[in-house]
Computed example of a mutant assay.
Amino acid sequence: MNTNRHLSKTVGGLLSATLLAVMPLSALANGQAPFAKDKGWAPPVGDAPHGRLLIDRLEYAAGDNEDSVNLDFKAWYGGDYNRVWLEGEAENVVSGGSGGAIENLDLLYGRLISPYWSVQAGVGYQLEYGPGPNHDRGYAVLGLQGLAPYWFEVNTNLRVSEDGDAWADFETEYDFLLTQKLVLQPRFSTKVAFDEVKEFGVGQGINNVKIGLRLRYEIKREFAPYIGVSWNKKLGDTADLVKAEGGDASDFRLLGGVRMWF
Rank of each mutant, 00 (worst) to 15 (best):
M1C: 09
N2L: 12
N4R: 14
H6N: 07
T10M: 12
V11S: 05
G13R: 06
T18Q: 02
V22D: 00
M23P: 00
A29I: 01
Q32T: 06
K39W: 05
K39S: 08
K39T: 12
K39P: 00
W41T: 11
P49E: 00
L53G: 02
I55H: 00
I55E: 00
L58R: 01
L58V: 12
L58E: 02
L58H: 02
Y60M: 07
Y60G: 09
A62N: 11
N65G: 07
E66Q: 10
S68W: 05
V69W: 05
V69H: 02
V69L: 10
N70H: 10
L71V: 13
F73Q: 01
A75D: 00
Y77C: 01
Y77H: 03
Y81G: 04
N82C: 08
E89L: 14
E91R: 08
N92Y: 07
G97A: 09
G99H: 05
I102V: 15
N104Q: 15
L107G: 06
P115T: 04
Y116R: 04
W117A: 01
S118F: 05
V119D: 00
Q120P: 03
A121H: 02
G122Y: 07
Q126W: 04
E128D: 10
Y129N: 03
Y129V: 13
H135R: 11
D136T: 02
G138S: 05
Y139F: 08
A140E: 04
A140M: 09
A140K: 01
A140N: 01
L142Y: 01
L144C: 06
G146N: 06
G146I: 10
L147A: 06
A148G: 07
N155W: 08
T156A: 11
V160N: 04
S161A: 11
D163E: 11
A166Q: 08
A166R: 14
W167F: 15
W167G: 08
A168F: 01
T172P: 04
T172W: 02
F176W: 11
F176D: 05
K181Y: 10
L182Q: 04
V183Q: 09
Q185G: 07
P186S: 08
A193L: 13
D195S: 09
V197S: 05
F200G: 08
F200R: 11
V202S: 13
G205L: 14
I206R: 03
I206W: 01
I206D: 00
I211F: 07
G212P: 01
R214H: 11
R214W: 09
Y217E: 13
F223D: 02
P225G: 15
Y226N: 12
I227A: 14
I227G: 14
S230P: 05
S230L: 11
S230W: 04
D237A: 07
D240L: 10
L241I: 12
F252T: 14
R253M: 14
L255W: 10
L255F: 13
G256A: 15
V258H: 15
V258F: 14
M260K: 05
M260S: 08
W261F: 12
